[in-house]
Amino acid sequence: MSVAEDQTSRSAERAPAGKVTRDNVLSLRGLTKAYERGKPVISDISLDFPARGVVAIIGPSGTGKSTLIRCINRLVEPTSGQVLLGGTDLTKLRGAGLRAARREIGMVFQEYNLVERLSVIENLLCGRLGYVPLWRVWMRRYPDEDIAHAFALLERVGLADFATRRADALSGGQRQRVGIARAVMQSPRLLLADEPTSSLDPRTSVEIMELMRDMAAERDIPVIINIHDVALARRFASRIVGMSGGSVVYDGPPEGLNDDHLTQIYGRSETGGWIG
């Protein structure tokens, strides 16, 4: 983790921990998902997410983190429970209503999920698909302010000179920068990230986490990150949710997370390695 330590210069502006001043942006109530009947992957999860700051969900792979985060914007259909975004229950929405809710939630993926054969700038503009009428998408006549916004964001993530390159010409770290910019392009009320650093090397991982935290803080967007790397979670999150076997086993500030919790989350054999 020495690389990580070198990069701490900017982490002084760490998001304030646990300072819930406004209403919660997102509340989960009794959220359950079972792909097979009687075998829930996540069961009865109730969580509240504040309107600012970074929340990290940690836990071993296969514990339902990814299912949980995908239930929020219904990329995965929850079996039961409620997802309340600013008071609206997303699980009740259909069609245009669901799309309108989805466009308010930006998402960053592990495998970046860029459209490889489109240019970088068009990938960013894909973040506006929930807003822009179809004929404009078809003709590539995006609204001027969207294009200006896209270039500003690209400049912010340091890739403006790559705007016309195809997404498959970029490196992993660059692609994830585009992925973050695309999510922010939605002008979301909430940012979800599903293992955003798992496909990246340690140094790039730290850079990506910093970028995501800073960009969200600049725009006052709360972030929920799935991450299995406890060191990164501790460093960047103001709150940690630990999951094991489809349930929440820890919920609190990073400082409160101790070895016993980690053992409970990850099992005994590996605990030593997680203290970053």
Binding site: S119, I121, R140, I147, F151, E155, A160, D161, A163, T164
Partner: peptide
């Protein structure tokens, strides 16, 4: 100058 550069890229992209 940077803004001019960006406008240049934008003109090419679209």
């Amino acid at each position: 100058k940077r803004q001019a550069e960006l406008d240049q890229i934008r003109a090419v992209a679209f």
